[in-house]
Design a protein around this nucleic acid. Structure first.
Length: 197
DNA sequence: GCAGGGATTTTCT
DNA sequence: GAAAATCCCTGCG
């Protein structure tokens, strides 16, 4: 299995480690799409008001309490989905939100899925530059929630390591509470990130 | 380039 | 009944 989470890393460690890793997804037609992770956010186990696990285990966040390397997929704002990699010890409720990808494989398929969902084409840099966008582009579905991320149809594999000087640490986005902690990570200079300064 | 608002539905209080 | 780990279009400069 991949070594990314074999040591059950905490969310902060895994969020940093996932930068540069490659997320792959094969759809029902056998076509693969993949992208390099360029932006992540860590959601901690306890004392983190911004984490879904803060209020305890519910039907919605159940897979967040599974073992490290499990997919946590949930619906947001009624119309989009977000994809997370569960981290830490089983039952702890930690996860890493994948916020943006650099499209690598299956660009046509990714563009097609995004265009169909939207009704018109999107530019390359808009294909996966956001948590909801990358879910659309790769074809990730609610059915992937709770699945292991070690093998097809949805998995993560190590990629080119991102040197420390190219990693920027910042705040999490979109949270009413708990946004100001240093739990956001992205690759400096990547044109595909969702953060705008 | 930036600010503002609408879409849309599940979840929990 | 309000809030939510979002995205896109419009209007304006």
């Amino acid at each position: 299995m991949t070594a990314l989470w074999s040591d059950r890393p905490g969310a902060c460690v895994l969020a940093r480690r996932l930068l540069g890793a490659v997320l792959r997804c094969v759809d029902s037609d056998g076509r693969e799409a993949a992208g390099r992770v360029v932006e992540t956010e860590a959601y901690l186990a306890s004392g983190d008001p911004g984490s879904h696990s803060a209020a305890g285990r519910t039907r919605r966040n159940a897979s967040m309490f599974e073992a490290a390397g499990t997919a946590y997929v949930y619906r947001i704002y009624g119309m989009h989905h977000c994809f997370n990699v569960v981290s830490g010890d089983p039952g702890s409720g930690e996860a890493v939100l994948i916020r943006a990808l650099e499209p690598l494989v299956g660009l046509e398929r990714m563009a097609e899925r995004r265009a169909v969902a939207l009704g018109r084409p999107r530019a390359l840099r808009q294909l996966a530059s956001g948590p909801g966008k990358l879910v659309q582009a790769l074809g990730i579905e609610p059915a992937h929630d709770g699945r292991r991320l070690d093998s097809a149809p949805l998995w993560v594999e190590p990629g080119e390591p991102v040197p420390a000087h190219r990693v920027r640490v910042s705040r999490r986005i979109g949270l009413g509470r708990g946004a100001s902690l240093g739990l956001g990570f992205d690759v400096v200079g990547a044109p595909w990130i969702s953060r705008r300064w």
